[in-house]
Nucleic acid binder design. Structure first.
Lengths: 224, 224
DNA sequence: CGAAGTTTTGACACGGATCAAGTGAGGTGG
DNA sequence: CCACCTCACTTGATCCGTGTCAAAACTTCG
């Protein structure tokens, strides 16, 4: 694919709200977050890990409705929309794959709504770690329940809709319970099952292990 | 389109979490909500108005990750996936339109994250009314800033992640300020601009008035 | 070594939850 | 047509989770 790669420092903007994008970003390394100032606070709407295409939706929408910003240093590849559009015209399969990717992002977003609307601070933070671990595992960035996370506690506060002070106390509680460690930008999960229990986390919404999309004329079930 | 129409009473389930769907629902009248029990509470993740296709994502995902449920009586049309898939194979334009629809739903979901994460009760409720009015206006169900809403205050509480008691007080405050009226299942917005101000509502994220998707070989800009 | 940013701690304030009781309004049966 | 029941809405009192403010300890880096 034709592409140009660019590196971003911590807290550098890839797109801003209102921007019109002519390229799709692909996270090669590091983390990107979708965010927006609302009610005087910065609210992180989505977290994107390597392999994600955080602005795939811009293929069909005219203007960004939030900022896209690096959290920690990251390297991003940009592919022209024109190229992708030609690709998609020729390949229904690829179209479905891309579409599906945006649908999984939407499912993750729905889960965030559930998280913010109905869980207390401890469960929210625990859920964040569980989800991130699950997603990083898929792309091979989780090693022995351990992963790099170049976030400040402020970032985590912006994800969880909490104050930094309270995030700090909540993270300490998770540490005290022996569930996680987080220092020098590295997170370790000590008891993933217990953490998942605290978080009320189940990974189904990530739609990870679902079989491939069936052919349009489905095969008999026992063909699988 | 081949379709079967069914009516649902208040609080009847269309799909449940884990279900596999072989038809797409289209809301003909009434309201559907996507919801999920989380942390002992019922959290409404999305609200669907007539014209919406609340489970369009099930064309590509295997299992529902939340319940779909009627709020108030509603009539729903069901179209077989097999039919839609054939339609989409033949029409890239329609594929883009459907894809785009799921992307707008995702944008609305992101806004819900912002809402729950960063706004206080008053702004959340006000935002809900603003958004719903804007969406109903598009489908011609808003008449003189007035629309039918067959919700209980409990439903609204589930949308906003608040208790019924507090929803009640918040709605009363909006009434006291002369911003809304809500009785007998009919909502009236008295000062939409002021309400939008309280809610910090801007409709861009609904991506309503954006021009149509340009052709893949774009025309010169002054062609519009 | 100093400066700036991040994490930690404590004291206190407040928004919203919870609990409990009371008021309606619509639906049903006698 | 009225008595009753149920469910939604309303109100008041109290409690708790989280926010805010302010300062101290620690880190990172120039």
């Amino acid at each position: 694919m034709p592409n140009s790669v660019r590196t971003f420092a911590d807290d550098e903007h890839v797109w801003r709200e209102g921007d019109r994008a002519f390229h799709c970003a692909i996270v090669m390394s590091g983390f990107l977050v979708g965010q927006k100032i609302v009610g005087g606070r910065n609210q992180i709407l989505s977290v994107h890990v390597p392999g994600d295409m955080p602005d795939l939706h811009m293929l069909h929408l005219l203007h960004m409705d939030h900022d896209l910003c690096s959290a920690g240093p990251s390297t991003i590849a940009f592919v022209p929309h024109t190229f992708l559009n030609h690709l998609l015209v020729d390949s229904p399969t690829l179209t479905h794959a891309f579409w599906r990717k945006t649908l999984v992002d939407a499912a993750i977003c729905r889960q965030a709504v559930a998280n913010l609307g109905s869980r207390d601070a401890l469960a929210r933070v625990a859920h964040f770690f569980c989800e991130l671990a699950a997603r990083l595992e898929v792309v091979g960035l989780l090693h022995e329940d351990q992963f790099r996370l170049p976030f400040t506690q402020q970032n985590l506060a912006d994800v969880c809709g909490l104050s930094t002070v309270h995030i700090n106390r909540t993270v300490q509680e998770l540490r005290r319970c022996g569930l996680i460690e987080w220092k020098a930008g590295v997170v370790t999960l000590f008891h993933r099952d217990e953490l998942a229990c605290v978080a009320d986390f189940t990974p189904e919404y990530l739609h990870l292990s679902e079989g491939k999309r069936p052919e349009i004329h489905p095969l008999p079930v026992d063909a699988f």
